[in-house]
Design a protein around this nucleic acid. Sequence first.
DNA 1: CATATATTGATAGTAATACTATTAATTTTG
DNA 2: CAAAATTAATAGTATTACTATCAATATATG
Lengths: 228, 228
Amino acid sequence: MKYILQDLKVNINNNIYLKDPESSTLGKKIIEFSILLIDEIGFDSFTFKKLGEKIGSNESSIYRYFENKHKLLLYLTSWYWGWLEYQLVFTTNSISDSKEKLNKAIEIITRATKEDSSFSHINEVLLNKIVINEYSKSYLTKEVDNENKEGYFSIYKRLVNRIKDMITEVDSDYKYPTSLASTVTEGSLHQHFLKDHFSSLTDCDEKITPTTYFINLVFNSLNNQKND
Amino acid sequence: MKYILQDLKVNINNNIYLKDPESSTLGKKIIEFSILLIDEIGFDSFTFKKLGEKIGSNESSIYRYFENKHKLLLYLTSWYWGWLEYQLVFTTNSISDSKEKLNKAIEIITRATKEDSSFSHINEVLLNKIVINEYSKSYLTKEVDNENKEGYFSIYKRLVNRIKDMITEVDSDYKYPTSLASTVTEGSLHQHFLKDHFSSLTDCDEKITPTTYFINLVFNSLNNQKND
DNA sequence: CATATATTGATAGTAATACTATTAATTTTG
DNA sequence: CAAAATTAATAGTATTACTATCAATATATG
């Protein structure tokens, strides 16, 4: 719970936006409807002009909040990871048994978001789908090193690091806790994607969830005599 | 070796291109220099106009080979996966011990390409880098289901399936061989990317390679009494 | 409550992208 | 060497990804 309280409102690096979208009605509308529109037509076809038409607002007004759609994607995905981190910390905080704690953590980061909190303007179910379909595009760029230096990915990194810490708590001898944490986080998005589009490349379906698979994967690696 | 011989020339689905780039000098130049240019400026900034300038050829001539740059990316990545598959099959074919075979297979798909074969127009080292940085973009699209139906990803799927078969050979009781195979294949690209851009999210570096990590991960999961 | 200030909207404009079409020049092949 | 195929050159369109300017409207403060 150390650095989480200050982030209750999901504290997003303020260089990602030009004007805080949480600070106005228009800003919130931009966030709310960009999620709906990106889900509908995909990030590649998404433009500020189309978003403006959707919310009955001017393209130029949207440009006052975000430099470009890439920055908006960074905003949305940062919000998502911050929201997931909040759930992770809140839910696992009270668990003292390290295995049980890690188990719960994997459950939270690998499950599909099923219900929208409905009292904010953010639809978490659709946002989860956007993260599955588009998150990679936010870092697979030529600008990634500069943007990383600017701190645009710090929430995601902090989240992966929390999982790494929980892995180490379970087995301090395990040699690849960071890679395992990043494999689960990114691999979970990938397995969800495969389930929806390449069913021949995954065992996950209605019965077997990515959660089942990753819990098995992680605990097979920890406290294992083969593990040298 | 069943279906590999017909693919010696890397048999790419002929709906990916309008005219086979292997059939002419210009076609080969398009492939050769698109690899150099995408590596240099990234796929997002890459255009047929820039490529035309680079090879002293007209934009419209390139459009006679590929409908658009997305199709060119599908071509390049298919070629890469076909080339890797060839190495995989060729190298593991003679190994009778199933564990040793799987071990070698993981080595082949997770290692960084270090040398260019140099007698073709394709620079495999740069192509490997392109696959790491851009492959996800070829399927994270709204058209993925149609393109999958058209068979544009069949080489990749066949490769993952070969690894799945090898996993099952080692442990027929393991429940998630397909997910494990796709996790290794895609996770390897991801760990290479992290190593280059997010070193805090991976244990991989000069000493620990993705190969080391994934061999440990896979064999910890197989023939393991925890594996219920 | 009046006025200064900030925010948003409307319109216009630019350079680049992602193509298509046409015709001319060049190369290949039969 | 002539016919066919390929490539190059040029032009043109619609869309994208912005920037600039100014008017309209909302909001804040004194």
